[in-house]
Design a protein around this nucleic acid. Sequence first.
DNA 1: AAGCGCATGTAAAGGGTTACATGATTGC
DNA 2: GCAATCATGTAACCCTTTACATGCGCTT
Lengths: 180, 180
Amino acid sequence: MSLRHALIGLLAEQPASGWDLTRRFEELLGTVWPAGHPQIYGELRKLEADGFIQIDSQGPRRRKAYSVTESGIAEVRRWLTATDVDHTMRLEPVLRSVFFWLMTPEELAAYLEKEATFYRDLAEKYRAIAAAKDRGDYGDSPQTKSIRIAAEAGIRLHQALGDWATWAVNHQPNGLQGHT
Amino acid sequence: MSLRHALIGLLAEQPASGWDLTRRFEELLGTVWPAGHPQIYGELRKLEADGFIQIDSQGPRRRKAYSVTESGIAEVRRWLTATDVDHTMRLEPVLRSVFFWLMTPEELAAYLEKEATFYRDLAEKYRAIAAAKDRGDYGDSPQTKSIRIAAEAGIRLHQALGDWATWAVNHQPNGLQGHT
DNA sequence: AAGCGCATGTAAAGGGTTACATGATTGC
DNA sequence: GCAATCATGTAACCCTTTACATGCGCTT
């Protein structure tokens, strides 16, 4: 149910088409809230029917750019200020850790190594984005500053997961010993 | 698709019924992979049809305890060692941060305050679990050690999110100033 | 024996992903 | 003009959640 609000929120920055929003999601929100184009096109139609967004302009190849309406802005703000935050995370990597005892020490060591570098690389990527924002490469609009905050979450979360993976190397459960 | 494997994995520790597994999920995996009883009962039936688990014993009120089969163990191990880790996280709190500029400074400050204490409390809870495990309250079986590792992730992730929230207080986007 | 909570189950709806289909534009 | 790619859209499927249904066991 968050997709609706994310779409309205992105349109509050500037009018955009389904395609624009799909790319925006992929590049900006891919790690934190994935959404493919079928879902986005579908949701946009519903949002228009509900009056939260409207067709701003039409372009080539059936392109429809949407813009947000007054009631759309009100709806995002209602979401942000008056609905409970959903704190559930669905983290497969952590779920897997509950079953580490079913891996051999060798398998687990290799696995953790791979995970650690994956997370460290991602943390680095977010650090680069953050640094660019801090240098002012994208101006200092409130929108940019908000994304800067999201990037900080990316840094800290992936750093934490990377550190966790290296920590785990020294805390192996030693379940299976040389199993098939 | 991770639920299947998590269920087999839990049954690899000991036989359990749908109800047992539902409670186990709620208490142990609630934050990291929520699953309600309708999903669990359904999946158990499929897993039995696929031969990954079998009925271990029947009890009062139609209770069926399942145990894992050889091919079930093989299947979890295949999942753990031979399938790609799904690194996507669906974190509403981070998604929301992209739209912080639509909140007034006062709203945002209050929001972040609440978030910070929420995360700090949770981190504390995981720290308590970890400490109990480290004291040896639950023995030192490989299974217990695995859960200890998962708890460490809980500590680090929630700590990171808590720190992030307090950090964000000093980096507000200052979008709306005294809006409705 | 009445009532409450435990435990199992089913049905329907919603959200998300994958696969397929199509037209329009751009580059060659 | 042809091929590749861009952009939009639809359909089917799968996973998850919510709501409803039921029956057994325990307590009073």
